[in-house]
Design a protein around this nucleic acid. Structure first.
Length: 427
RNA sequence: GGAGAGGUGGCAGAGUGGUCGAAUGCGCCGGUUUGCUAAAUCGGUGACUGGGGAAACCUGGUCCGCAGGUUCGAAUCCUGUCCUCUCCGCCA
């Protein structure tokens, strides 16, 4: 949510922002409704004031006749008030629909335009390898080494589900450990979060829990949904709270399973593990003061880079274009890892993303902070970033680390948890 | 799943239909006192929102989980709903 006052004062800017983001929102109409609504509100409040005065006078009335007279006055005032309130509710409903469709403001440096305008701003330490042999994709590699059972997953839960087996199962655990170890070193609080959350929590974060195009699995007869990311649970944790300013920034890292229906994604390049209905993810989440959020955003991105550099995976960092940003994001950096088996001769594929949502989520979730000794409260800023999305990281590892002899070298950083240097060798 | 209790300010916790935005305590802010710290003591201190004002401040409205209802008037009565806690059952 944006600040309504800000919208009224900066209608053109907000309208332009919506256009940059490819969102249709009639800001002028919102301003008109909101302005009318405020006038109406004034009248309603004045009627309420008069009615309150009348009510108070009744206790001091001298006799029954006067009392009855006053009651009648009060009744009339409240009737008028209710009528105006109904009118206001009507305006507010229309204004609210427009309001809720407005995305967050956008960072001045974010490239304007659709997905094609997204800008590469950084590369990883590791160069893309030149393979002197025909590369296999992760599906073929997994088959060769008996790492993933797609058929089994489909049998028990349908297409898009899978079993990780053998070293792949170990790699999942190792990747979690690896990420969490690094983040604990950076003073993140490790958390294992619920894998389900209430509808209003999802909405607060910016997901739409039910409806035809939802990405979210819902549990029948309960207001519970399978989470699509631990961003939902970590962000929702502080819903309605007022946090002492000196406790900020709060840095959390949470492990959860992530469930996505991927409605409408059928037919897109999504072979193997790339687009699945369930995966495990280690997520970073931060609550900050407004002036801290930009630095925190860069920091989260740096950590993602460190994690992938540490795995020896080549990647690039993308400053996501305005047209490709989700509603809550003010700016988003995506890490795209090189996936040699993707496409005809390798392609970059998104493996993590870090978003600064400024106060957009905090306003919806009503998460505020208070400075000691100062009056009033303010909305915190929230940020989220993927540490490791296991399924996509697995693709990158398997495909980048494959060797001419068909074996896969285990990234050094993970060996202590895998217990071997290489997948596929008999040694 | 069954039974019961409860949701009130940053926290804890009172509250007979009007004088209750709400006692009291903690916390917080300010003053006094005391080598420092601590303690003591006095005063102040809810949120949101509208209007006036350069500002200090003044002034309206709303808010006691949420939504309705009764009433001139609701934290208080009624209905529904959500949530939390306790006990029992089941269970890794």
């Amino acid at each position: 949510m944006l600040d309504k006052k800000f919208i009224l004062d900066n209608a053109e800017l907000v309208q332009q922002n919506c256009e940059h983001r490819g969102v249709k929102a009639d800001v002028a109409r919102f301003v008109k409704l909101e302005t009318e609504g405020r006038q109406l509100q004034q009248q309603i409040e004045d009627l309420a004031r008069q009615a309150n005065v009348v009510s108070k006078s009744i206790g001091k009335a001298k006799d029954d006749a006067e009392r009855e007279q006053r009651k009648e006055e009060g009744r009339e005032l409240r009737e008028q008030k209710d009528a105006q309130q109904a009118e206001l509710d009507r305006l507010a409903a229309e204004a609210g629909a427009i309001y809720r469709s407005m995305p967050n403001l956008t960072h001045a440096e974010a490239p304007i335009g659709d997905e094609a305008r997204s800008r590469e701003i950084r590369r990883g330490e590791i160069e893309v390898r030149r393979f002197g042999f025909p590369v296999l994709d992760h599906v073929e590699l997994a088959q060769q080494h008996d790492l993933i059972d797609f058929e089994g997953g489909a049998r028990i839960a349908g297409n898009g589900f899978y079993f990780l087996k053998n070293e792949a199962a170990l790699l999942e655990l190792a990747l979690q450990q690896y990420a969490i170890e690094l983040l604990i070193g950076e003073s993140f609080t490790p958390m294992i979060t619920p894998d389900v959350a209430r509808g209003e929590i999802l909405q607060g974060i910016g997901f739409i829990p039910r409806g035809p195009e939802t990405q979210i699995y819902s549990i029948e007869n309960h207001d519970l949904n399978l989470v699509a990311t631990a961003e939902i649970t970590l962000g929702g944790m502080y819903r309605g709270e007022v946090i002492d300013a000196d406790k900020l920034p709060i840095k959390l890292c949470g492990v959860s399973h992530c469930f996505r229906t991927e409605a409408g994604a059928a037919g897109r390049a999504s072979r193997g593990l790339y687009r699945v209905h369930q995966f495990t993810k280690v997520e970073m989440f931060a609550f900050t003061l407004p002036e801290q959020s930009e630095d925190m955003h860069n920091y989260l991105c740096d950590l993602e880079c460190q994690l992938f550099d540490g795995l020896g995976i080549p990647y690039r960092v993308i400053d996501t274009a305005t047209g490709d940003l989700g509603g809550p994001a003010y700016r988003k950096f995506d890490l795209e890892a090189w996936m040699p088996g993707r496409g005809k001769s390798g392609e970059y594929g998104e493996v993590t993303s870090a978003s600064n949502c400024t106060d957009y989520q905090a306003r919806r979730l009503n998460i505020r902070y208070k400075v000691k000794g100062e009056k009033g409260t303010h909305f915190v800023h929230t940020l989220n970033g993927t540490a490791v999305a296991i399924s996509r990281a697995l693709i990158a590892i398997l495909e980048n680390c494959q060797q001419p002899d068909g074996t896969i070298i285990v990234p050094e950083a993970l060996r202590k948890w895998i217990g071997k240097d290489r997948i596929g060798s008999t040694e």
